[in-house]
Write a protein that binds this DNA or RNA. Structure first.
Lengths: 239, 239
DNA sequence: CAGTGGTCTAGACCACAGA
DNA sequence: CTGTGGTCTAGACCACTGT
């Protein structure tokens, strides 16, 4: 681990331990740099991380202060919790999702799907529908489109665990992030059949395009959730 | 404007203008630093911004490359568009929202509201319900709670324009960000009356807590949208 | 090996706020 | 004025990659 990460971790620990009083600024950057035997630039980089995580805020000409609410509540690392897959989301809660594969085909994309994945219409895609089940209760229907040219080797085994682990560990690719649209809509027949929802129970739909490190989109998906079992949480930080 | 921002802007312009070929890496950091008459650290900081914005990606030992999809589509600055208020959201589209104030009181908070705002139950709050109207069509009902101790001077005039401008420009406070929960739910009487939705039209609800720079929450709100007129968009970047 | 980005340093000057 | 954080520099060494 690099130096600024070590220092950042130590400082985060100190903040949570109450090492510094919240009534006054923490020591200035030069003092801290001396204490940690590093340059001021490195100290600043370490503190930058804690500012981004919401533990500290700076006032030019004043000093660096502790965000009280951040160390009182235990909402630690909310930011880094932002994840893509369901498997990863639920792991922290000691729950493991099961998957029922409703559809698993290779097909040609529609115009809309091709556009979202930046591929031609003659490029075959995996066309996948899965029902994800948690604690023996239906949780979400995921409709997923993945170009076969970009992600190879998807099997039923991969689908029943995590596609993202396959991409990361087996294929050695790096996921950069995703764009999402969240909307409310009315349930269709598939929702009513598999999620067991009534005709006027709303559905929360998350449309997502996932990108690799090099900007290539590799997945286009729709996740349809029961309105009483899911809400979407985001953290928005102004720059 | 500081140097690294100037350089970053110039480089963004070059990328969008097709100044560099997408088939090969852009010039290395030392070469660029010489061209821009700056140090390598400053050049790196300028490029960091473009990497965060999704225009560039780096490969250690290889070079810095252009994300093709980012300069093809015109989804520029998606990241920095993330905003809080409706006024700001619509300005870019040349639309100006009108507001109808349904409720504007000062009251004591419920236990739940006090908890979200980290205040005592004897601290008075503004209790506001507004209907926002765009193009003469009802758009969203916003239910807002703001501690009177933190944000002073809210008037009907402020409510009919932008609360956030008031906080920033009149009070000189800095907004740090917000936490949001997004869910689908069934419409209540208020929704049906003011949004004109039917009994089994879903509602998209956004629950939001906004924080100041120093970590103090200053606003707790619920925005209830017609399902056919709004979707929530987010950009998720992995670190 | 050479070329790239990643980190780190010691020091400098600037912008801002309060005394 | 002093003290704070914000920026910038010139140079150094390291880690990773393909030749």
């Amino acid at each position: 681990m690099v130096k600024y990460e070590q220092i950042s971790n130590e400082m985060r620990k100190r903040l949570l331990d109450g090492f510094y009083s919240t009534d006054q600024p923490i020591p200035d950057e030069i003092t801290l740099a001396n204490q940690f035997n590093c340059s001021r630039m490195t100290m600043k980089k370490a503190l930058d991380i804690l500012v981004l995580e919401g533990f500290l805020y700076r006032k030019r000409g004043h000093g660096t202060f502790i965000v009280r609410t951040a160390i009182q509540t235990n909402k630690v690392n909310v930011i880094s919790k932002d994840s893509l897959g369901l498997s990863h989301l639920l792991k922290g809660k000691g729950k493991i999702p099961a998957s029922k594969i409703i559809k698993f085909n290779v097909e040609f994309p529609t115009e809309e799907i091709a556009a979202h994945l930046s591929i031609e219409m003659d490029t075959p895609i995996y066309d996948i529908i899965r029902l994800r089940i948690v604690d023996n209760e239906p949780y979400v229907i995921e409709h997923t489109y993945i170009p076969t040219t970009i992600i190879q080797g998807i099997s039923e085994k991969v689908l029943s665990s995590s596609v993202y682990s396959h991409i990361k560990d087996n294929l050695g690719l790096t996921i950069a992030g995703s764009h999402r649209k969240i909307r409310a809509c009315k349930p269709n027949e598939l929702d009513q059949e598999y999620l067991g929802c009534l005709q006027n129970d709303p559905i929360l739909e998350v449309e997502q395009v996932c990108y690799l490190n090099n900007g290539v989109p590799f997945e286009y998906s729709f996740s349809r959730h029961r309105y009483d079992k899911f809400e979407f949480t985001t953290v928005n930080i102004r720059r």
